[in-house]
Design a protein around this nucleic acid. Structure first.
Lengths: 236, 236, 236, 236
DNA sequence: CATGAATGAGAGTTCATTCAT
DNA sequence: AATGAATGAACTCTCATTCAT
């Protein structure tokens, strides 16, 4: 109950503009967590349209009527679910960077953490790609904003590497985009990728190409050192 | 009527295992083209579930009943639509490679053509990501197979570059994956990317990073030469 | 409300394997009685296929959607209706035998009660003949089982008569079959029979032939006595 | 092609008031035989409502459009099919009586032939019970008339037996009704009866009860003689 | 606040019938 | 006379949402 992911999810659900009919703030938060957990699971497995509100209610352990005290429409539930997933990403990455100061290592860790959290909720990631367009325009914007939050975390690492002279004069936005899509693609193309590689291999080989593609000679040297030390750590 | 895209779409629709109630082959092909055109448009804009078969029929200029002479279920229509889009990709790329023999240039052209055809049917590309999971498992496989078709085209170019000593000892599958996701991402993240770059810039900058990431020194030299000649051609 | 027919119908509806979406047992029973009453009436008059679920709902005083909370398919409604009718038969006969111990008289009363209850629900009886085959195989079995229930009641009476030496060495199953078909035929051929006889005449003349066909001399004597006493009772 | 059944069916189809759009009489008759054969088979197996006109057309080896040159509606096809079956019954019985003059034996043969022809087309017999009510009132009358035709054949035999002093003073109509229902019941309850008896046993035991029920002492004696001679014939 | 039965508009699909060829 | 593609009304069933308790 005290995992940061949880807390963050709770906070996300709070800031959602999805107004509830119930005034007790703590209760709202608790019920929405129940709903979101059920919704993420069901929507991810069955898709948004194939899942009924009744099913969500049952899985969340409450009545159909109660659902509508905490979300105005089925689409509100979807929004809650998507934001919950997206915010959990935005929480995991900083967590992985805590105490790490080296820009090279920070970038490596950030991308690695992103891949890892996506791996742990692959179906939910695919859900975001499938279902965002099912939302009203305004809510789509909220999802995109949440996505940008994560993007910024990666972008900051990229920018720091550039300031540190590790990467050459490439568009930070483009480099970020490639790293982000790389992480997402582990979920999107998991059906194909899993046949030929593990997540660790995927991360190592993909990061290698992307970083090599943007690195300065100094950056490459640093990168080689990092990899070597990781190998040693891995071997130990 | 003789555009290769058309022709290919026709062929794709033929090989679909979606059996029709009508025996006249030409008629089936023609009607399915009507249906597919309407379906791609409507599904792309509104999503699969928000679009009714009635709407597809109306847009295709036929009655509800007629639709069901050419597709057994609404999902069949979706399959037809997705395969049509995917096959059109698989047709455009070879078209762009006709007469080009240099491996470096072939890779560049293949990725460029992929980005271009995706750009021209962005909504349909997103549709494939959103809706494939709405299909029965068997039909999902067909969509994945069609996607692999295109993948192979890119993979062949990558492999040729490697044989030619232009790229280093990286996993061809991984490199291909990155190029493919790169092309797809133009559609998937168009809402964000379009703000800061044109498709040409996107292609140039992204390809630069990815190719640099996999190139040998010889490959980098060759790449520089290609870019210079393209610039000249562009300037002329 | 305390008529035995009612009670039996309720019980029958309970034991039906037709699962409802609603948990309140009393409510389910009550709503199903409404539905069954409407269904028997409409199906009997118009036939199963010519009757829409909407019509049944309207006549039952509820919405289309509600119907589907108490029966999973239109065929479930038919099953409920047929079982209700069949079970009402199986209830009327024991009722008519209460307190009667003489085997001869029991047989006479059983057949008479069967004819009477069939007469009172002629259309429903014909419905069973018309519509059982419209049911899925499993549900057809349930209907047949229910029919056998009634058969057994008659068969028991026949067997008792034989034990009592009133009927000769004929196949009990065959004799039962003839009595049962005799009763059913009052509904099946009512269009023709009603022109030339009343139900009482039908029963008297038909029973006379069938019983004479199976009786021992002792049985015939007993039968003559019974008829005489009934005549007297009728005359009084 | 020269079997009497065929001929009769042809005649029946002619006298049907189902008007065709085609004038060539021979052609109409031939096509209707095709249609009827297909319809009896499909309606019997699947039921009237579960069978489509398209299916009937396909099985009859003609196009959907052609069907409508020989029957105005789907119900016309049903009428044609039912009358065909009913008339085939009315033809088989006289056939079985040819050259037989003894009233006792004629009755036995008539009932036997009825059971036999019903046995050979059990599904079609059940079809008549299921589907007659699906017809417009006028056409229902035609079916009933056709049924009465057969009834009359049996009734005549019964009446002759009575004139010959073989049966006692019972209502001829009632006796006929019992014999007819007895024959029909072989098809209607075949699912149950087949488990415990063959058609020959069914006929022997059932006829025994019914005839005993109506016979005079003289009739019983005659009947015993007939049975003995049949046994001998059977044994030889 | 919580419940869950009730609602009814709306979706996909079928098929008897028509009619241009 | 024959064809078979086209039609569209009509049906069954679903499910987001409401509201009396």
């Amino acid at each position: 109950m005290s995992r940061p992911g949880r807390k963050s999810r709770g906070r996300a659900i709070d800031n959602t503009n999805v107004r509830a009919q119930v005034s007790d703030v703590t209760l709202v938060q608790q019920r929405r967590e129940q709903i979101v957990e059920a919704a993420v699971e069901l929507f991810s497995k069955q898709g948004f349209y194939r899942t009924t509100v009744q099913e969500v209610a049952a899985r969340a352990g409450m009545s159909t009527g109660s659902i509508y005290h905490y979300a105005r429409t089925k689409e509100d539930i979807l929004l809650l679910a998507l934001l919950s997933v997206l915010h959990s990403y935005a929480t995991e990455i900083p967590h992985a960077l805590e105490g790490v100061t080296d820009p090279m290592e920070r970038l490596w860790r950030a991308v690695g953490a992103y891949c890892k959290v996506i791996d742990s909720r692959r179906a939910a990631t695919v859900l975001a790609y499938r279902s965002t367009k099912s939302l009203p325009r305004k809510q789509q914007e909220m999802v995109k904003d949440a996505e940008l939050e994560t993007n910024t975390l990666i972008a900051d690492c990229v920018a720091d590497c550039r300031s540190a002279g590790l990467i050459r004069d490439v568009d930070v936005a483009m480099a970020t985009h490639l790293f982000v899509m790389f992480a997402h693609s582990w979920a999107l193309k998991h059906w194909r990728l899993q046949e030929s590689m593990s997540r660790a291999e995927f991360l190592r080989d993909g990061f290698d190409i992307l970083f090599t593609g943007i690195a300065t000679p100094a950056g490459l040297e640093k990168y080689a050192g990092l990899m070597k030390s990781l190998e040693k750590a891995g071997a130990a």
